[in-house]
Structures are given as structure tokens and as C-alpha cells.
Design a binder for these strands. Structure first.
Lengths: 235, 235
DNA sequence: GCGCGACTGAGACAACCGTCACATCCGCCG
DNA sequence: CGGCGGATGTGACGGTTGTCTCAGTCGCGC
């Protein structure tokens, strides 16, 4: 797949003519990375924009003690690290490929020229930033209010909605993550994920099929558990 | 103070001519609210942009159980709720005045016409969004990695840097918050804030002067406590 | 089919924290 | 001065969770 046709699919460049797109493609660098390749780390100065062609990129923060918190993950057609391009600041987080991924890199200068001359691009970028901001509010709220089991239930329910496929007795999902990677997304420890999975299993909300696959009989009911302590509060 | 001169001070409208600014002012609504006035709540459709002239506005999320998590607070000269203006989505959080505040309200349509015709405004807005995003990453990381005492230490250190004034024996700050309001900012309970304050006091990192004021002998040292568990991790 | 290494589940334990209960303090108003 | 109400400090208690440890399981290559 060539760079132009990948860029063509992005909402970001929807308004581009073929020649503008070809010019952009010619100045971009497409490269395939193996799994576990660190694209950049927190605090590093920003060199440009990455766009995911295939694969998956995880954006995360690391604690001094070595723990990790995933902020978001981006798949095909999604931009990564557009924020620092605007305010000129450093990357606010680190990024790593979760699997073999093909990425298109647009150098900083090239991209800036682009969006300055192109209000549609600026608009699209603002919308991306907005989406990111909303997601981060969601992450923050989840961390502040819900226990591990509830966070897991919420994650699984959302994952099922996005990537699940109907199966006998409910919706089936393939996690494609180890328990430890899951713990990074939920901001907890590997062992707590195991315990939380057990809890959900015992309540009949999920059935584990091997290590990777999970069957969810009722996604809506799973979501319900994600709102614990839902008692009235008087004041 | 009239609306025009307030707007004039905003970096957002720095590039405006006097007449453009006057036009904007004439279509905006300035109003003073008492403390504790709810401007909008999570999920509500967006009606326009607020700009803080005087006072302070708190943006927060509420849990079903009645707990609260502050996402950020904005003071004079800062815009509130610019995000939903762009993607057309609902407010992602709620907002309330913390004290008596004068706010300028710019209706949605008026504002959109504004930034579409004015690349400088769009730029400024994107930078605001970026700042917000960075701050939220910080909040998320803090919640995920640090215990209450460390979060409090970090909060006080940052507050001292922003609003502290030099005094005999260190930097003095006036919190202007009850312990409960503090607990909302830190994502914890009122009692835990009391206990964490006691901890910091016992370690000699702070001295409490009455209920509202705190003396910090060494802000840098206070920051140090905010990074607990800083042990090397081998792998 | 054997063995290695990564992944997973489970138990024990302590630390942290939210909650309840209650005593105390403080400002304020009568 | 008295008292009232909100704010604060403190102790007790239990649930949640991070950490340590170890055993069991699975996949994969040889």
C-alpha cells in the first residue's frame, strides 16, 4: 500500500486534491516498525506527526516506580502526537508500537505549512484534539471514581462494542493483550486484573475462553456493574 | 469595567482591532454570579463560550455516588468550555463559580463566525486546548501513580509557585478552600486531606497558620515528597 | 515429546484509604 | 456572653489494592 492512498483515507486530509496529497506523500516517510518500538518518550522535543497506517500504537505515561498508565491507543487511520505540533511544547507522553505497525511520519515543518494554509485541516485537527480531551476526561473520571473491577467491566464493555463479534450466547471479543498490558490500561497491577476477571466470572458477567478470548452474554449488564455505589445521596 | 476592555486583555483576542472587539463586546453578555452558581452540567448541549473576568470557576465531574473530581479551575482572563464549541458535542464536565465571579458569555454562533474568519483566534484556541490537554494528562498521571500525601504535596508546591508570596521562613500561601474542596481537587475524602496535612506537618514540610494559610519553608523539598517509591526498577 | 520461558492464578500480608462516629474549634449573630 | 452551625481533627474499622511468592499452564521451538 503506498503512502498516498493511506493518507487519502484520513478524515484529516479529506479535502485535499490528488496533487496536494501526492506532494505531502513525497515529503513523508513511511516505515514499518516491529512490536515494542518506542517512537518517542515523555518530555522529548517534537519532531513531527505520526499517522498509523496499520498496527497499533500505545500512548502512555510511566511512573518513577516503573508503573505505567495508558492514556489512549490509536489504530489505522489515526494521528499520533498532534498536540505538541501546535504549542511547540515537548511530547506530554511516550508512545510505543504494540504490534508490528506501519507508520507514516510527517515532519514538523511540512505539517505546519500544511495546516496554516488549510483551514479544513486545522478544523480536523481541532476535532481530533477534542476527541482526545473527551477521552482523557473519561479516563480521569474512571480512575478517580471506580474500583478495578468496575474499570475492567467498563473497558470490556467498550471493547466489545468496538471490536466484538456476535457469537452463540452473547458477544465474543479477542483481547490481544496480556493481563499485564491490560493492567496498564486500567492503571492497576497484573494480579488485580486476574482477581477482577475472576469476580466478573463468578457473577456470570463473562466467560473466559482460553487466555485471549472472552464471551460476554450481556454487554449492557456488564456496563451496569461499572457503576457501583450508585446510591442516592441526600444533601 | 466594561466588556471591551476585559476582552482586550485576553490573548485570545490579541490580534483584534478596536472595532472588531467592540462588535464582539456588543454581542456578548457580561454578568456577575454569586458563589456556587452552576453554569452548566455534564452532558448538557453547549450554548456558548464563557470568559472569566473576575473570580474563579471550577470544572469538575461528579460520580454517581456523589463524589467529585476537579479537572481544572480557571481564573481571570481564561476561557471556559471552548471544547464543545468545535466538535459540537455536549459539555464533557460541569462548571460552578467558586466565589463571586463576573463572566462574559459569547454565544455559540457569534463565536464560531469569529474563529472561522480569524486564523489567529483559531490558533489561540488550539493552544488553549493543548494546555488543557497537558494539564489533564498531569491529573491523570497523579491519580494513577501517587498516594494522597504526594498529591497534596504536589498541589501545594504548584499552588505556592503560582499564588505564593515570600514570607519569613519560606513561602506563604492562602488556600481559599475548605478541606473538603481540597479533597475534590485531589480526588479523595475530606478526612484524608486532614491526615495528609498532618503528615506533611510532622515531616516539617509545612506549617499551618490558622485554617486558611500555610507556610512552606522549602517548596523544592515539598516537591520531593511528591515522588515516592522512586526506586530503580530492573528489567 | 521435551523443555524452556512467558503468562496466569492464587494466597498471604501490609499499606492505603473511604467511611462512620464523635469531639473540638472557630466565626458569627443574637 | 451564649449558642449555633459549619469546618476540622482524630480514632476505629473494614474493604480494596499493591506487592511478594510460588505453583500451574500454555505456546513454541528443538
Amino acid at each position: 500500500m503506498d503512502t498516498s492512498s493511506v493518507l487519502r483515507q484520513l478524515p484529516l486530509f479529506a479535502s485535499f486534491g490528488d496533487d496536494a496529497l501526492a506532494r505531502l506523500a513525497s515529503r513523508s516517510i513511511a516505515r514499518t516498525y516491529g512490536p515494542g518500538h518506542v517512537l518517542f518518550t515523555t518530555g522529548e522535543p517534537c519532531r513531527g506527526l505520526y499517522v498509523v497506517a496499520t498496527g497499533r500504537v500505545r500512548i502512555y505515561r510511566t511512573s518513577p516506580a516503573g508503573r505505567e498508565q495508558v492514556l489512549h491507543t490509536e489504530g489505522p487511520g489515526r494521528p499520533v502526537a498532534e498536540l505538541p505540533l501546535f504549542d511547540g511544547g515537548p511530547y506530554p507522553a511516550s508512545a510505543i508500537t504494540e504490534e508490528e505497525s506501519r507508520l507514516i511520519f510527517v515532519p514538523r515543518d511540512e505539517f505546519q505549512a500544511l495546516y496554516r494554509g488549510n483551514p479544513d485541516v486545522a478544523d480536523a485537527i481541532v476535532r481530533e484534539l477534542g476527541k482526545r480531551l473527551r477521552h482523557l476526561v473519561h479516563v480521569t473520571e474512571t480512575l478517580a471514581f471506580r474500583d478495578v473491577a468496575a474499570r475492567l467491566a467498563l473497558f470490556l464493555a467498550e471493547f466489545a462494542q468496538q471490536h466484538g463479534r456476535p457469537a452463540r450466547g452473547g458477544v465474543e471479543i479477542a483481547l490481544d493483550r496480556t493481563r499485564e498490558e491490560l493492567s496498564f490500561e486500567l492503571g492497576t497491577a497484573r494480579e488485580s486484573v486476574s482477581r477482577a476477571l475472576k469476580q466478573l466470572r463468578e457473577k456470570g458477567l463473562i466467560t473466559t475462553l482460553g487466555r485471549n478470548r472472552i464471551l460476554i452474554p450481556d454487554v449492557a449488564k456488564l456496563r451496569t456493574l461499572a457503576r457501583p455505589g450508585e446510591r442516592p445521596h441526600y444533601e
